[in-house]
Every structure is written in structure tokens, then in C-alpha cells.
């Protein structure tokens, strides 16, 4: 997907929210949109989704199937979770049986099964947000757009978001995520698009090369530290150091191992 000189403002004589944005997002690539509150992150995402049209310039090569998770799910609707998702699956073009399977799969994965018969206005904010996630994933998106996806989610669901992103990327899709809380540190392979004063600055992923490393911190029981270090070394990882008892998990005597994840390669 490419952005060619995209300008946007909300009113004819209003200020420009975005000025001459030239961006590209290839298949299998992810980008994180960063910026202060109200700077135009959601606007950028809505342009990507095709919900807003640029005043000047254009967005081309948008994948056919787009999944958009808005910042706030519109829960003020007279449907149950199951009825809503089944309806949205059909709106997305899935056939009857296919739609039912997709709804079953995503309600299970996102822990929505017990809310199946609950009406949308009765859901908590986090649960409603999960319904928002589910509707975007019912049909595998070629472009997944997540507007502050971690907002309001419980720990289990928060952990799930990077997995979902990985799945879309692995299937050749693209992902665009906005974040103002630093949760996207979990996506080290994503490009950084910073929005400020109407301009977007794209920055390639810091650690895009296969030579790049990240530090993975592990906690293992003290008794198994030596064995773990040996196994990690045998797997080709570079163990940086072993240090004393960390605060977690409570009650268990553990020891922390810093292993440099080298994807099977020799260390630097």
C-alpha cells in the first residue's frame, strides 16, 4: 500500500491535519504510528482503512480485505455479541457456514464464548474492545489496522495482540498499529511512523536486518539454571549472564538468564 502526497483536513477552511504524507507499507510489513494525543494518529489509520478520503493525493494498492479495529467499539447497538458478529461476517462477504465457523473460532480465541448471548451495550469496555477485534479478523485481513488495541484489554488479551499481528504478517498481510503507551515495544520488527505537526516521519525498523539481536530475559528455577544455559547455548543462542533471584514468580527460587536471541546464528 502506498500513500502519494496525501493531504487531509476535516473542513474546507480548517487546518491541515496531515500535509503531504508519502508512505509505503509492503506485504508482510508492520508499522507503528506514534505521536501525542490528538496529533492525527487515528486520522492516519482511517485514511489507511479507506474510511476517510484524502483532500489531495491518494492512497493506492490498498489490500482488498481490510480489518479495522477502531479506538472505541460502538457498543450502542441492539444486538447480542453472537448476532452482531454473525451479521458482520455476512457483511464481510462470508457464506452462512463459513461465517458461523469464523464467529465460533474468534469468540473462542478472544475469550468471548460466555458473552455470546450478551447484548453489546451491557459489555464492559474491554470485552466490547474484543468484539471490535473479532469483527476485524472474521475474514483474514490483507491489511489489519489497530487503533490503540491494548486499551482496556486484560492481560491475557494483551498478550494475544502481538500473536494476532504475527499471524496476519505471516500470511502476507500488512499491519498498522497506533500506540501511545509504549506497548508496541513488543513489535521490534515494525517501522515507526511518527506524526507531529501534520507531517509523518517514517523510520525503518530499528532491527530489521537478520544480523540484529534482541535481549530476551528468562526466569528459571535455580536448580535448572545450568541445564537451561547449556541448552540455550546448544541451540546457538548467546547467553550474556546469569544473575540472582528476580522478584517473579513469587515463592519460587529462580534465577534469571539473559540470552541473546540470535535466530540460530553465531553471536556478534
Amino acid at each position: 500500500m502506498r500513500w502519494e502526497g496525501v493531504w487531509l483536513r476535516y473542513h474546507r477552511r480548517g487546518p491541515w491535519v496531515l500535509r503531504e504524507a508519502d508512505l509505503r507499507l509492503g506485504a508482510g510489513e508492520a508499522a507503528v504510528v506514534l505521536g501525542r494525543n490528538g496529533v492525527g494518529k487515528s486520522t492516519l489509520l482511517q485514511l489507511a482503512a479507506g474510511v476517510l478520503r484524502p483532500a489531495r493525493g491518494r492512497v493506492v494498492d490498498r489490500p482488498r480485505h481490510v480489518g479495522w479495529v477502531p479506538e472505541r467499539f460502538p457498543a450502542d447497538q441492539p444486538f447480542t455479541v453472537g448476532r452482531y458478529l454473525a451479521g458482520m461476517a455476512r457483511v464481510a462477504g462470508l457464506g452462512g457456514a463459513e461465517a458461523d465457523r469464523a464467529v465460533l473460532r474468534w469468540t473462542e480465541r478472544l475469550g468471548l464464548t460466555r458473552f455470546h448471548g450478551v447484548r453489546l451495550p451491557e459489555l464492559s469496555k474491554g470485552t466490547a474492545q474484543k468484539v471490535g477485534l473479532a469483527q476485524a479478523l472474521l475474514r483474514r485481513p490483507g491489511l489489519l489496522i489497530l487503533d490503540e488495541p491494548w486499551e482496556g484489554l486484560d492481560a491475557t488479551a494483551r498478550e494475544l495482540v502481538p500473536t494476532l499481528i504475527d499471524e496476519v504478517l505471516a500470511a502476507g498481510g500488512s499491519v498498522l498499529v497506533s500506540d501511545h503507551r509504549g506497548e508496541t515495544a513488543r513489535l521490534p520488527g515494525a517501522a515507526r511512523w511518527t506524526v507531529a505537526d501534520g507531517t509523518v516521519t517514517a523510520q525503518a525498523p530499528a532491527d530489521a536486518s537478520p544480523e540484529a539481536f534482541v535481549v530476551v530475559e528468562l526466569a528459571v528455577p535455580v536448580a535448572r539454571a545450568a541445564g537451561t544455559v547449556a541448552r540455550l547455548r546448544a541451540d546457538g543462542h548467546h547467553v550474556l549472564r546469569v544473575r540472582g533471584t528476580p522478584p517473579t514468580p513469587p515463592g519460587a527460587a529462580t534465577s534469571a538468564v539473559d540470552a541473546s536471541e540470535a535466530a540460530g546464528r553465531a553471536p556478534r
Binding site: 482511517q46 479507506g50 474510511v51 480489518g67 479495522w68 460502538p74 457483511v91 464481510a92 469483527q135
Partner: peptide
């Protein structure tokens, strides 16, 4: 009747 955001969600899934 439909909230604005829901209308946009439908637009993204079904096309304008």
C-alpha cells in the same frame, strides 16, 4: 440509528 463508527466499520468490510 447506526452509530457513526459502526457505519464506518460496515463501509470497511463491505466497500463504500
Amino acid at each position: 440509528v447506526e452509530p457513526d463508527v459502526q457505519r464506518r466499520l460496515a463501509l470497511v468490510l463491505a466497500g463504500a
